[in-house]
């Protein structure tokens, strides 16, 4: 049996008295597409951000590719990983944000090349060639020299996906990638994500797009108030929800 790409055991996180995650278990196998759904404030974004240690979890075990996230076990004791080690870990995990977070002072192609060139010390010319291929892959030919402000929301999000892919990640995290988009632009981003899923990329997606969840995802987790209420095959639980909470949630979303 191979180790899962992401594994969470009793993960907890709180901001002061506000308990956002109250012991979450989750497992994502390699090549799997997992969606996290749930009402806002349920902790799904926090869980996602714990996976690449943008947020530090307070308790529980979180492993990516078999390795503990943010900590290291040495002689039976847990040690916090240094900033440099955390960076090395993060460089292997791609992340796509709700508000794109493209670098506005860089062109589309510079947005994509800056990670590999500055972090991985990759060859600049080779990276540019690869970046052009990635732009073509997300359907953006001839947009190399456009600044983010000159692109539509959907185009910006596709550049953001290409930026994450340029690092050759073993895992991609999506934090509500279509929530900030105009309805007519949602499709083009989902199309790129579907293509990515078909290519075998391991993905964890926080989303409200139930159609995408049913069509592409291999597993779904429903979070509510910091706990996982229901999980399973999205074609099953999203169609025949067992818990009342998921039934309520779906009736509001669909």
């Amino acid at each position: 049996m191979t180790t899962p790409m992401v594994e969470a055991l009793g993960v907890r996180k709180s901001y002061g008295a506000n308990h956002v995650l109250k012991g979450v278990d989750l497992s994502v196998a390699r090549g799997e597409v997992t969606v996290l759904i749930g009402p806002s404030g349920s902790g799904k974004s926090t869980l996602l951000r714990c996976i690449n240690h943008l947020e530090k979890h307070d308790a529980g075990q979180l492993r990516v590719d078999g390795e503990l996230v943010g900590y290291q076990l040495r002689n039976g004791k847990l040690y916090e990983r240094s900033e440099r080690e955390l960076c090395t870990d993060r460089a292997q995990i791609g992340m796509v944000f709700q508000r794109f977070n493209l670098f506005p002072h860089l062109t589309a192609i510079e947005n994509i090349t800056i990670g590999p060139v500055k972090v991985l010390r990759a060859n600049e010319e080779a990276t540019r060639t690869k970046a052009r291929e990635l732009l073509a892959r997300v359907g953006l030919v001839d947009k190399d020299d456009h600044y983010p402000s000159q692109l539509s929301g959907g185009q910006q999000q596709r550049v953001a996906i290409a930026r994450a892919l340029a690092m050759d990640p073993k895992l991609m995290l999506f934090d509500e990638p279509t929530s900030a988009l105009d309805p007519e632009l949602v499709g083009e981003v989902l199309e790129v994500m579907k293509d990515l899923a078909r290519s075998g990329m391991t993905m964890v997606v926080v989303t409200h797009e139930m159609g995408f969840a049913r069509e592409v995802a291999t597993s779904a987790y429903f979070l509510d108030q910091g706990v996982i209420e229901e999980s399973g095959d999205p074609r099953d639980i999203l169609v025949h929800p067992k818990t009342e909470r998921l039934q309520n949630f779906l009736s509001k979303v669909l």
């Binding site: 993060r90 460089a91 670098f103 972090v119």
Partner: peptide
Amino acid sequence: GQLEAAKSLGMTRGQ
């Protein structure tokens, strides 16, 4: 979000 995006690419705080 800019710092988060930079961090998610594996950049150190200095980078």
